[in-house]
């Protein structure tokens, strides 16, 4: 840089024609800079999900074999997805809670589809640090609220998969999904 200043000093003495010359140098360097930035964009973009990854962004789940009280673990966008059919008792337990007392206030209705309240579809990703909570598998620890229990740092979720105890800040996320028939859903 020192030398640029030095040449600047020299040219300044030259008067009017000189300012045009300076302008060319600045323009040339600016163009190089703009070009460098333009090159960086695809270099960054290539790390975004590729077209084949995005194409797998939806999952179909068959519900016909899930009995009340049972849950299955499947995958959605390469992450665990919990699909659970609640029992009457579990629904009642979830409805009993006053949402305003919750850390992340939500009712079971808000977390399920109208008329199909027994189907609780959530991501199996603890909202604390992303571990997979227990409770979807047969005989797994469901924690003291009967929903899911994260073994990493002891977050307990209730039967509507809402956070009740432990460090997690939010309820288990409910992904976008829709019923394609009475016994099948499309997630994503």
């Amino acid at each position: 840089m020192a030398s640029v200043e030095h040449t600047d000093g020299e040219v300044l003495a030259g008067g009017d024609g000189v300012r045009r010359r300076d302008f060319i140098n600045i323009a040339a360097v600016s163009f190089a800079g703009v070009g460098a930035v333009a090159v960086v964009l695809p270099l960054i973009d290539q790390m975004n999900p590729s077209a084949d990854v995005l194409a797998l962004a939806s999952t179909e789940v068959d519900l016909s074999d899930i009995q009340p009280g049972q849950a299955i673990k499947t995958t959605f966008r390469s992450q665990p997805l919990f699909v659970r059919q609640l029992t009457e008792k579990e629904i009642a337990e979830a409805d009993k809670v006053d949402p305003s007392t919750l850390r992340d206030p939500q009712t079971l209705e808000e977390r399920t589809v109208d008329g199909k309240k027994q189907w609780l579809i959530t991501m199996g990703v603890c909202t604390h640090l992303g571990c997979v909570p227990l409770g979807a598998g047969e005989g797994e620890n469901r924690g003291e609220y009967g929903g899911y229990f994260c073994p990493c740092h002891g977050s307990s979720y209730d039967t509507a998969a809402r956070i009740r105890k432990g460090p997690a800040p939010k309820n288990l996320e409910v992904p976008k999904f829709s019923f394609t028939s009475d016994t099948a859903i499309l997630v994503g």
Partner: peptide, 13 residues
């Protein structure tokens, strides 16, 4: 081939 077809700007790289 997948880089060429599916990765963003993969063909360019």
């Amino acid at each position: 081939e997948q880089t060429m077809r599916d990765v963003n700007a993969g063909w360019l790289m």
